[in-house]
Design a protein around this nucleic acid. Sequence first.
DNA 1: TCGAAGTCTGAAACCGATTGCAGTCTTGTG
DNA 2: CACAAGACTGCAATCGGTTTCAGACTTCGA
Lengths: 329, 329
Amino acid sequence: MRATIREVAREAGVSASTVSRALSTPDMVNATTRERVLRAAERLGYAPNRAARGLITGRTGNLGLIVPDLTNPFFPSVVKGVQAKAREADYAVFLADTDEDPAAEVGLVRALAKQVDGLILCSPRTREEEIRELTAHTTLVMVNRRFGTIPSVVFDNADGMRQAIAHLQALGHRRVAWVGGPRTSWSTRDRVRGLRAASSAAGMELFVAGHFPPYFEGGVAAADLIIASGVTSVIAYNDVMALGLLSRLRDRGVDVPQDISVIGIDDIQMSAMSSPALTTVSLAKDQAGRAAVDLLLTLLLQPDSVRNTRRELPTQLLVRGSTGVARTT
Amino acid sequence: MRATIREVAREAGVSASTVSRALSTPDMVNATTRERVLRAAERLGYAPNRAARGLITGRTGNLGLIVPDLTNPFFPSVVKGVQAKAREADYAVFLADTDEDPAAEVGLVRALAKQVDGLILCSPRTREEEIRELTAHTTLVMVNRRFGTIPSVVFDNADGMRQAIAHLQALGHRRVAWVGGPRTSWSTRDRVRGLRAASSAAGMELFVAGHFPPYFEGGVAAADLIIASGVTSVIAYNDVMALGLLSRLRDRGVDVPQDISVIGIDDIQMSAMSSPALTTVSLAKDQAGRAAVDLLLTLLLQPDSVRNTRRELPTQLLVRGSTGVARTT
DNA sequence: TCGAAGTCTGAAACCGATTGCAGTCTTGTG
DNA sequence: CACAAGACTGCAATCGGTTTCAGACTTCGA
C-alpha cells in the first residue's frame, strides 16, 4: 500500500541506503542525487515507517501523557499545551486517563513505557516507592509534583497562596479556611504548606477543613464545615471545588462575598462565568504542558543535562466577584 | 535493556519461534513447554516489542482520536469513553486536538494514519471531498457526523429537538430561537433540521440566529440577537454556548426563565451548577466514545461487516431551572 | 604521473518480532 | 513390525528501515 524505501530507491535509481541518507542525513549525499531522491520520494508520497525506524534506532517519536481525570477542566488545558509543543517537534502523544486511581496509573505507565521515548505524569497520585521503581525503566517528567531528581514542572504555589492571603488581609479578613484536595496529591500538600506560611506571616488564623475529592461534589461536601467553622474566607484546592462551595453556600443562604469570600485555584474557563465570578489563583496550564515537553525532549537528547531540574511557573491572583470586604461580626 | 524474545528462548531452552507461539497461539505448543516458556518470560519480565510485531503483522495496536477542542467539556467525556474501551481491548490511544481548524485536522489524520490501525474523528470539520480522500488510505470511524458509507456514531438529534420543543410548548411558548454552532459542523445542521421539523409540527415559530463559535463567547455574542428577536425561548447548539447566553442575558437584565427560557445540548457537568441550572438535552458522551471504538475494532476484524453502519444513541431532555412558563406579553 | 586523502555510494548486517516450511518424534493402525 | 498421520519444534525468511564497512571514483599535491 504505502511506498517503501526500496521503491523510492528504484524510482530514483539508487540504493535504499542512499535514500535513507538523503532523508535523514542530507549532507552525506551529493546534492544532485539528493534532489533526485527527494523528488522520487515526493512522487511516490513516501513517508518512512516509524515502527521500522524505531526498531533500529530505538526511538519511537512518541510521548505519553498520563492525567488523573480529563473531566477536570484543568487537565485539558495542560494536554493542549503538551500536544502543541509535541507536534512542533514532530512527536505524537499517547494520552491516558487514570480516573484518579493510583493503581491504574502504575499500570498505564508500564503499558505505555514500551511505546514511547518518554512519559509526562501530570499530577500523579502514585506512591513514592513506586515512582522510584518506574524511573528505573522509563524517562519521566512530572507536572504538579516534585520527587527526588525527576525533572518537574510545578507552579509557585507558595507565592500564589501569599497573593491570596494578602488580598484577603487587605479586605479585612482574619480567619481563612482551606479546603484540600486528594490526600495523595502533592500539590495539595504544597499549597497547604504555602498557605500555612503565608497566613502565619500575615497573622491570620487558618482552619484546615481536610481532604476532599477534587470534584464539584467535594466542594459541596466541604461547604457546611466551612460555615460551621465561622471563618469569613475560604481557599479551595481548585476551581471546580470552589464552584461546588459557591453552589452549596448559596443553597444554605450564605451570601458570597457578603458573608464569606471564596478563592479558587486554576482559573478554569467556567470560573469567570459563575455568579459571583470566582476570584482565583490563575495558573498557566498550557505553559506547564509545553514546559514539560521541553524538559522531556532535552532530557532525551542529553540524559543528564536536566536531571534534578525543577521548572517553576509563576502564579497570578485574579480578583473577581467572589471576594469582598470581611463582614464585621 | 528490556528482554527480547531470544533471551526468553535461551532461558527456556527453546527457539524464538516457540516462545512466539507460546505467547500468541498457545494451543500450537505442548503444554509443558508452554508452561516453561511462560515461566521464563515471567522471570525476565518479558513483553513483546510492539514496533517489531507491528512491522511484520502490519498492525500497531494503536488507535487515533481527533477532536476539535479538548477545552469544550463535551470532548473529554468522549475521550474517556474511548480510552476505557480501548484499554479493555489492549489498544493505546493517540490523541490530537485541532483547535477547530479543519486544515490541522487533515494534517493530523495524515500524520497519525501511519501509526495506528484506525482513527476516530470526533465532530470533524473537514470538507467532504477531503474526508473521502482520507478514507482511501485509512480506516475511519466518525462521531457526531455522517458521511457516505463511513461507519459513524451519532446522537438522535431529531428526537432530542422534539423533546425540547414539546417541553417548551407545554410551557406555553410559541416562539423559539436557535443559536447555531460552527457552519462546518454536521451536528449543527442535523440539529437545526430536527428543530425545523419539530417546531413546524408543533406549530411553533422558529427564529434561526445563525452560526456562532461553539464557545462561551459565542453564546454571549448571540444573546443580544435573541433579545431583539422577541422570542420567549432559545435552544443553543451546546451547553457552553447556553451558559454564555445565560451570562449575557443576566447582564442585560433579562430574567431566565421569567422572560426567556434557555435550553442547551450536551449535559456537561457545569450545566447543573449554573444559576439557574440549565435545562439541557443530555447526550451519553462516554457511550459514544465506547461505541466508536467498538465499531472501529469490528471494522478492523472484518472490513466490510460494518460498512455503512450508523449507530444512533438516544438523547434525553433534562429539565432544570432555565426553562419555565412563557411570559404573556 | 602516482599515491594519498576525501567524497559518495552500495552491499549487507541488524533491530525484534512472526510465520511458512520442513524435519523430528510420537502415536495409532493394519 | 512397518508405515502413515499427527503433534511439536526449529530454521530461515521477512517486515522497512538504519548504519557499518568497504569499494569506486575524484581531486589534489608532490
